[in-house]
Write a protein that binds this DNA or RNA. Structure first.
Length: 758
DNA sequence: GTAGTCACTATTTGA
DNA sequence: TAGTGACTAC
């Protein structure tokens, strides 16, 4: 009975279309979900509905792109159904496939405890291959080759198919890199030999496993995963879709696959995502039922309308129009600076003004930019104004050198064939194994088709190098031994000590070294936490193995640190538009809206890429719940040169009705003091106005009314006390919330101050 | 083995 | 401008 009630209550929280999408659990379903339309809610409630319909949790496979999205989903399901949530197979494509490959990899020629190569490892290996082939590393740009290999894998193009493909070969010739296919071939060999998979391999090898179907492994997983769900389907690449098809299309299949996505938010074509998959879906699953979630619960009218305005300029799209029944709210504000510096200053001022007017906390505000390089100016001005901020998307914790070095010791202990790990630490900290020795080793290993570790036994060494090498091998063996008898934490502790990394930093005695020691300690803490985690996820196969070193290594190699936002401080967020996808803020600033920047100069040559930039802009503006401010600068420093760019075409695409006090975009630079274009409209006292909260109904008093001893409100500085006024009508006001120099001298003739009576 | 110098390049990013 | 990687000289 209780359960019945719960069932009803969760369905009642959905609108009609959402409810349909949630309760249609048989057959293929496609949900086109506009921004802010309750996509996550549909996904989670659908899983809840499956569980309530007596579907065993382990038959449900829910795939996302980020750990964060997966965690959010699991947490929400747990709130509704409890522990069963953890028996659902929910996670990122990569983590779920890695989990399966840990059990099955031996069937396709990989060890079950394969290493995972991150992008740095891949690059380092490719670099080595280029060198071994005596190719010019300037022409054979490592990054370019890596992404070429990556996209070949993502499109299921083997080296053989690569050579046979005229288009690819022609492209490589044009780029003066005709040997790319050969590098690709060697790279695959080397990964296999090292027992390592890169990120693309986690998908590719999963595909191979299902496709080659050793021991009918495909049927096993087809039988297990009867219900598939995919989030952000517009971000899937060819390979991912092929895997999904292998799992869901077969004789007797119910085709219970539900995809959720939005073609208008497809912004990752540069890493292989293709909207074709959405369009193809209806062909592959002709029975598909399509639901469009068009009601936006996030943003106020003008923002939603502006988003619609802009996206209509893209021709190729699934027709839909988002709408909202929220209040019309504020119009979009436009800020123009003469230079990038000034843009930064004006944005910082506008932020302070908004904070005071609407009593926003820092965490309700975000600044979005097209390129990360733009963050600096804003940082400077925010710091100057004493606004706490944090930047999304810097170097992740697990990418720090010292952390990776420690991990390399552990990786090597788990899988000695891991050449990239070996290269990292064989002479770090320095133990007298020089470049020459390492080069010989690499070459010998390559010539014999074995791993470097296996070569160590046979390589000829000078007596000196021999002792050093002996020491190194001893350390690794010791770590290995520890790993057998002890848990991951104790093993890692030993590795840190024996490797000499900590001693190295201790002797350095600098602030930076201190920092690195702290990071290593943080890593150790993390490992300890992993080991001591005694929360037993019911139903999962928990045995000693799960706490093993190799398991820990897998877990963290698939992690980024966008997870660690355990911030105590109230911070404003600075981030690129790409990384803002999926997030929302009360007030959003989209900055640097200039031609050649947003849209990026890289995209101007092709209409497809320009459309993607436009979708990116669409994503940017739909992050805002109530206040949206757009800005551009007449000039800015790019690559050390002053550049003059026109305002972005996207600004013109928003209809004037949605912009406060429209200005002519293409107007010549003004010489008057730049100011916020379009004044803030005084808020109505209507209590339903989203942001009108009590005292923030700011209304300036005539400056003559300001007297000594009064409490006043200033839009920029907040609440203050008038200490004195001099003969030139300059008031000295002490502001409560300003930590440094709370005393400001305010010119009353210009200031807008509201007298506070209490 | 390392410090110093020069030349080159330059979106977006998850796992 | 700023960061990186390769090369040179000790």
């Amino acid at each position: 009975m209780q359960e019945m009630k719960l069932t009803e209550s969760y369905l009642n929280e959905l609108n009609d279309v959402q409810k349909e999408a949630v309760t249609t659990i048989n057959g293929p379903v496609m949900v086109i979900a506009g921004p802010g339309s309750g996509k996550t809610r549909v996904l989670t409630y659908r899983i809840v509905h499956l569980l309530k319909s007596q579907i065993p949790p382990w038959q449900i496979l829910a795939l996302t792109f980020t750990n964060k999205a997966a965690r959010e989903m699991k947490d929400r399901i747990e709130k509704l159904v409890g522990q069963d949530a953890y028996k659902v197979w929910a996670g990122t494509f990569h983590s779920i496939f890695a989990r399966i490959l840990r059990v099955e990899a031996h069937r396709i020629g990989f060890p079950n405890d394969f290493s995972i190569y991150d992008t740095d490892d891949s690059k380092s290996l490719i670099k080595e291959i280029i060198k071994s082939m005596n190719l010019d590393p300037k022409v054979y740009n490592v990054g370019a080759i890596r992404s070429r290999i990556s996209s070949a894998k993502s499109n299921l193009i083997t080296p053989k198919m690569y050579v046979a493909n005229n288009e690819l070969i022609e492209q490589d010739k044009m780029n003066r890199r005709p040997m790319t296919y050969k590098i690709y071939e060697k790279y695959l060999e080397r990964c296999q030999r090292a027992g390592a998979m890169d990120f693309d391999d986690l998908l590719l090898q999963m595909f191979r496993l299902l496709y080659q179907n050793p021991d009918n492994i495909r049927e096993k997983y087809q039988q297990q995963f009867k219900y598939l769900m995919v989030d952000e389907f517009q971000d899937t690449n060819f390979l991912q879709y092929e895997i999904l098809k292998l799992l869901s299309i077969y004789n007797g299949s119910q085709n219970n696959i539900c995809i959720v996505g939005d073609d208008a938010q497809s912004i990752y074509s540069f890493r292989g995502a293709t909207i074709e998959n959405i369009l193809q879906f209806a062909n592959d699953f002709p029975e598909v039922k399509t639901y469009k979630l068009e009601q936006n619960y996030r943003s106020t009218q003008h923002i939603v309308q502006a988003a619609n305005d802009v996206i209509t300029f893209n021709k190729k799209q699934i027709k839909k129009e988002i709408w909202t029944d929220r209040l019309s709210g504020n119009k979009i504000k436009l800020i123009k600076g003469m230079s990038d510096t000034e843009e930064g200053r004006m944005i910082a001022n506008a932020i302070i003004e908004q904070k005071n007017r609407y009593s926003l906390s820092n965490s309700e505000i975000a600044i979005l930019y097209r390129t990360n390089a733009q963050s600096r100016v804003f940082e400077e001005h925010l710091r100057r104004q004493n606004i706490a901020y944090r930047i999304y998307g810097g170097l992740s914790f697990y990418q720090r050198k010292e952390v990776k070095d420690v991990l390399a010791y552990l990786r090597l202990a788990v899988n000695t064939k891991d050449d990239e790990a070996l290269k990292r630490v064989i002479n770090y900290p320095k133990r007298g194994i020089g470049q020459g020795t390492t080069n010989n080793l690499t070459k010998l290993a390559d010539d014999n088709g074995i791993s470097m570790w296996e070569c160590l036994a046979q390589i000829q060494l000078s007596p000196r190098a021999k002792t050093s090498m002996g020491k190194f091998v001893g350390i690794i063996k010791e770590i290995q031994k520890k790993a057998v008898t002890e848990d991951a934490y104790k093993t890692a502790l030993l590795a840190v000590k024996k490797s000499g990394i900590i001693d190295l930093f201790k002797s350095e005695n600098s602030l930076e070294a201190q920092n690195r020691i702290e990071n290593i300690n943080a890593l150790l803490d993390g490992i300890q936490e992993f080991v001591e985690d005694d929360v037993l996820d019911e139903g999962e196969d928990i045995n000693k193995q799960e706490r093993s070193l190799s398991n820990f290594l897998q877990t963290i190699s698939l992690m980024t640190d966008q997870d660690n936002d355990n911030d105590q401080v109230d911070t404003l967020t600075l981030l690129s538009v790409h990384s803002a996808k999926g997030l929302e803020f009360k007030s959003v600033f989209v900055v640097g809206l200039e031609e050649n920047l947003f849209p990026s100069y890289m995209s101007l040559s092709s209409p497809e890429q320009l459309d993607e930039e436009r979708r990116l802009f669409y994503v940017a503006i739909t992050r805002a719940e109530e206040i949206l401010t757009l800005s551009y600068a007449n000039s800015r420093y790019q690559y050390g040169q002053m550049k003059f760019n026109d305002p972005s075409r996207f600004l013109e695409e928003i209809s004037d009705d949605n912009i406060e006090s429209s200005i002519t975009i293409k107007k010549k630079p003004e010489f008057a003091t730049p100011k916020i274009l379009g004044k803030f409209k005084p808020l109505s006292s209507n209590p339903t106005t989203p942001l009108a909260v009590g005292a923030n109904n700011f209304q300036a008093n005539p400056s003559n009314d300001i007297k000594i001893g009064q409490n006043v409100l200033h839009l920029k500085f907040g609440k203050g006390f008038v200490k004195s006024i001099d003969e030139r009508r300059v008031a000295t006001i002490v502001f409560e919330n300003i930590a440094e120099n709370p005393e400001k001298r305010i010119m009353l003739n210009y200031a807008r101050l509201q007298i506070l009576h209490d």
